[in-house]
Computed example of a mutant assay.
Amino acid sequence: MAEPVTRLDPRRSDAALVTAALEGDERAKEALFRRYVGMVSGLSFRLLGRDEELEDIVQESFAQAFGALHKLERPQAFAAWLSSIVTRVTIATIRRRRLLSRLGLLRGEPVHLETIIASTAPPDVVAELTAVYGLIAKLPVKERVVLILRRVEELSLEEVATQTGWSLATVKRALVRAEGLLEVSRARGEEEGG
């Protein structure tokens, strides 16, 4: 049996914590949660663009991870594996929201830019980011997720494919479509604005 994990023991590796959690050590799960809750919150926030269900996504992601911990083949890869779970839970949330919105059961809510953009940002930067976030929110789910994982999270195309569970070809097509849609929208905005 693994030695008990102390609450604030930063020396334990992810692999050691996963092994201890698999042996029933609840403190190991707590340590993994504390270590990665910021990453999970940040990733889901960037993918959603808003935070109404952020806590639900964080809880669901960790619940799925701890429920399937025995399936993790490489305990040292916990962070990447957890990121994949967060991405898939967030994708499901985006799809559910879009369906409810189409059915008239959910009203679309704007991105809360004050939580994303620094208060010291120049007005032209605020305007451009407002436009970009508005465009991203309208993208189809695959295009939106792939664009954010590639351009914001700076993952390689292979990492995006692994994290989403989509094929590399699907990821490449979605990225090309997303960038094309953004470019078309940007060009329309420039034509309308001046």
Rank of each mutant, 00 (worst) to 15 (best):
R188D: 05
A174N: 09
Y133H: 11
V171M: 07
E191P: 00
A65P: 01
L113Y: 13
T115V: 07
S101R: 14
G24R: 12
V152Q: 10
R107V: 08
T164W: 06
F45D: 00
T162C: 00
P140G: 12
A187D: 07
P10N: 12
A63S: 12
M39S: 14
R177D: 09
F78A: 00
V145N: 03
A118H: 13
R150E: 02
I94H: 06
S156G: 14
T90H: 09
R12T: 04
L147C: 01
G134L: 00
K29Y: 04
E183L: 13
E158I: 06
T93E: 15
L182H: 11
E30Y: 12
R97K: 08
D56Y: 10
A137S: 13
V37G: 01
G194M: 04
A92P: 03
V5S: 07
A174E: 08
E154A: 10
L103T: 03
G24L: 09
L22I: 04
Y36F: 13
A65K: 01
A187P: 00
G24E: 08
R97S: 00
K71R: 15
I116L: 15
S156V: 02
E191I: 08
V171S: 06
V5H: 02
F62Y: 07
V160Q: 05
E52C: 11
F66A: 05
A65R: 02
S83H: 01
I85R: 05
F62T: 00
E179N: 09
R27F: 05
I116H: 05
A127I: 02
D124G: 01
S13M: 04
E154R: 14
M1I: 01
A79L: 04
A178I: 00
S167F: 05
V40Q: 03
L106I: 04
G189R: 14
L106Y: 09
K142P: 01
K172A: 13
G42H: 11
P123D: 08
I116G: 02
P140E: 13
Y36E: 09
I85H: 03
D51W: 12
T90G: 08
E60N: 06
S61W: 10
W81N: 02
V5L: 01
R102A: 11
G180K: 11
V111S: 04
P10G: 11
A187R: 15
T120M: 05
S156M: 12
L155D: 07
W81D: 00
V184A: 15
A118D: 14
T87F: 06
E191L: 15
L139M: 09
A131C: 02
P122M: 09
W166F: 13
I116E: 05
R7C: 11
I116C: 04
R177A: 08
W166V: 00
I116Y: 09
T120V: 08
V86Q: 02
Q64F: 07
E109Q: 11
R88P: 04
T130H: 10
R107H: 08
A28K: 08
G180S: 14
R173E: 07
A127F: 06
R11C: 04
G67T: 05
A161E: 07
V152R: 10
A178C: 08
L99I: 11
L105R: 14
A28V: 00
V171I: 03
R97E: 12
G108N: 10
H112S: 13
F78W: 03
R12I: 03
E55K: 03
E143I: 00
G67D: 06
V146I: 10
E23F: 10
A178T: 05
L105A: 03
